[in-house]
Amino acid sequence: MSKPLRKTEPMSTTTPSPAATIVSLPAPAVNLWRGRLMQWLREMAATILPPLITLAVILGVWQIMCMKPDAALPSPARIWSEARDLIVDPFFVAGPQDIGLGWRVLTSLQRVGIGFGLAGVTGIVVGAIIGQSMWTMRGLDPIFQILRTVPPLAWLPISLAAFRDSRPSAIFVIFITSIWPIIINTAVGIRNIPQDYRNVAAVVRLNQIEFFWKIMIPSAAPYIFTGLRIGIGLSWLAIVAAEMLTGGVGVGFFIWDAWNSSRLADIFVALAYIGLTGFVLDRIVAAVGSFATRGTQAS
């Protein structure tokens, strides 16, 4: 809308002189910056305190339940005393197989990065092709729906047989586990592009490539990122299982190794590492998604 141009005309030509003396008020006692800081701290406390309290309660109950000397599982205090080096320093190197859990997580992340990266690119392209055509969708969707329920480990023997090497096998397992939700979500996103956008594209005469970049990808982006988010979660699930069997340096093998040498405390520490890393991965994909899809929600 056009803003009406309004000339600011003075109501009267002479400035009225104040009838009473002006009393200046004292400056507010609390300064604004400090007030804002206090409010920020209060908000932070409201989000951080509840999970911390819950964690303390869980650790407390666990400690009480596993305090007996003949308990099957170690208590938090025992984990702390037995696996202290793993907890306090994630990045120590004391020998070829005696390295900090940070290094192991990074090795696993590298595998996930390759497998998930391949799955992301392939999944989006395949999903886009499938979403374009009703017949490919009808033909392939039931197969995908069945394949996506196959557990990651079930793929492992096949990929070991095909690749005859543990490293590509682990990556393949990640790839094949995480690709289905990416394909399916992308295809659904493409199919749900509103007819309006297709009409716009037709009227301005976008060609296939322009349509892909300017309409399809932005319009389907929220769906694509949902697929990627499910996919990264699944690939993190798969890596641990795959590494248990293929060996090597990753965090999955570390758990298997710790179990074989009865270091239960180490396993608990590794679980914490895995959980936190999975959480961070999920949040990263979610954050990238909400940044990339800002404004794409139709209104």
Binding site: D196, Y197, N199, V200, A202, V203, V204, R205, K214, I215, P218, S219, A221, T293, G295, T296, Q297, A298, S299
Partner: peptide, 18 residues
């Protein structure tokens, strides 16, 4: 076939939200 010589203003504006 559609073309820019017959531009359409759609009922629900159909602007690309991104």
């Amino acid at each position: 076939a559609p073309g820019p010589d017959r531009a359409v203003v759609f009922q629900n504006h159909s602007l690309l939200p991104w």
